[in-house]
Amino acid sequence: MKILTTVKKVVDVELNIHVKDGAIVEDGLQYVINAWDENAVETTVQLKEQTGAETTLVSIGGGDNTDIIRRCYAMGIERGIHIEDPALDKADSFIYARVLQKVFEQGDYDLVITGKQAQDTDNGQTGIILAEYLGLPCVSNVIGVEVIDDKHLKVSRAGDAGTEIVEVELPAVITVDVSINEPRLPQMRGLMMAKKKKIEVMDLAALGTSAEEIGCAAPKSEVIEFMESEKRSGGRKFEGDPAEVTAQVVELLASEAKVI
């Protein structure tokens, strides 16, 4: 089995993010591997351990993202492709999906594993659109994977009515949720070894395509303004005798907030 795993470098959401004049203030931001993609990498490495699958990751944009690719190497990924091209500066999910389609078509892959969602866009679209472009089956929001044979997977998906157990034929695309696993922490030794490994950096031309073919000049949508989100402020905190403070709060819920 040959697996292609997608990994995006995104802003660290645990840090404060400020907006000024309709744009995000770059100062003080840090960039990390997208949480869901870390789960995609863990899923990939587990499949490699079970089946001897060949593993390749691809990351588009993100500037210098050798750090996150090395981290994935240290987790067990064998090959890393970084696609960087100024024409992709305004890319939306459809454009990323077109680029991923090119990468897929060059590699004879059996399975694509993407994150469910990128933490910077919160779109949850790219993997599903890629599957449409490739005409492949797709299961999104996957929380479990089992290999049936080299042509079929049994995946579980968190759906509205419960957990759906889906048998999917390969080649296929799956998008994974954070609940699927607990990504391993790369060990020191792995990180040292990863430093020596090559990262294949390409622009669109090296990928055998062009900005025109991908449609870079015509994103279907673009963010024109960022705004601060409405912050909820904390109200009152009650400490002390549980019986007393609880009675007090219930009284307020009834008389002040009027919600009970």
Binding site: V11, V13, I17, V19, I24, Q119, D120, T121, D122, A218, P219, K220, S221, E222, V223, I224, E225, F226, M227, E228, S229, E230
Partner: peptide, 15 residues
């Protein structure tokens, strides 16, 4: 909302 609800974005649709 985007970035785990930390910001709100206005998006222009070109299609």
């Amino acid at each position: 909302p985007a970035i785990t609800n930390k910001v709100v974005q206005k998006v222009k649709v070109n299609t």
